[in-house]
Design a protein around this nucleic acid. Sequence first.
DNA 1: ACAGAGATCATCT
DNA 2: GATGATCTCTGTG
Length: 188
Amino acid sequence: MDVLTLLRDGGDPVALARGLIGWTFLVDGAGGLIVETEAYGRDDAASHSFRGLRTANAAMFGPPGTIYVYRSYGLHWCLNIVAAPGAAVLLRALAPTAGLDIMAERRGPVPPHLLCAGPGRLARALGVTGADDGASLFDPPFALVPGAEAPSVLAGPRIGISRDTERPWRFGLSGSRSLSRPFPRATH
DNA sequence: ACAGAGATCATCT
DNA sequence: GATGATCTCTGTG
């Protein structure tokens, strides 16, 4: 099942998270290669959707392709793409390829490979905020460009969670320097 | 290189 | 009152 079919018909967030590695994500022309993602399911104790529909997580229950933005630790914004109602993919890191100047402006003096190396950094660099919550991936300013070929993808446990910590639902582009953290016990 | 703390707020207990 | 799908800065080895 390819990414476009998953996004059109809705489907497994794990398949979408893995499939998005190597694609390019842009907001207003700024962004880069998706090098790190995480999947969150509907019946997944680590997921914001686990306790059901709330005002803050309503966008996560929208149709496939809905943008779900939440505030993390009271101060960062993090961006998800809905795979199916209650299931989504967290975009954790990009390798910057476009709009480096505007992203550097938003992020301050950091090395280019760290501009989007982490979910909070990524949202900051792309200018994504709570105002984007509920928007559609298929409409401007968002854009998703297919990857060239099947990349080498690493998998490992998700980061920063305290429940269902062992599911290998974090995915990364092998060899990328823009990962938020390395994959210690990485598997293909 | 690694560890710890502070920032900051909606939601949950 | 505690807890996060985090980041940055600071202190120490």
